[in-house]
Amino acid sequence: MRLFFILLVAWLVLNESVAPGHILLGAGLALAGVLVYKRLEPATHARNRPMLVLQLVGLVIADIVRSNFAVARIVLGLGPMQRKAGFLSLPLEIRHPAGLATAACIITATPGTSWVRYDAALNIVTIHVLDLADEAAWIRLFKEHYERRLMEIFE
């Protein structure tokens, strides 16, 4: 039912109105959206932990801002002299599909890293990193910032 309210609020924000007609129309559209979604996807059983989700969102925003400036430096040629871009294989602990999807979106949305391939059998992900200066530090950052929190939210 969370999805219903998200869709309804999105409709009201889009129309910038809380008139009864818009609430009725938005509720109808949101209901249709929920019914379509139910047919597409089984429930993901995310635990209800708003504080943890907010914390994760804050972290993601901070990391995106930081890596924006890091990539800007590289584009301008002000970055490290010996930059080495490359692929990085990372063994994961998280297995929940929704958690993995969220991790993939976070990694790809952050400038400088992008999710390339996931091996479900071995639970290993391949990531392309623009500035692969310190592999160990990067892996530690991913594990501490994202994986642990995603596991707490989804598993």
């Binding site: 995106i64 990539v71 949305a109 400038p111 390339v116």
Partner: peptide
Amino acid sequence: YERIHPPTMGTT
């Protein structure tokens, strides 16, 4: 693969 990264600055 390097070109993938910079445009995400504009989109985020």
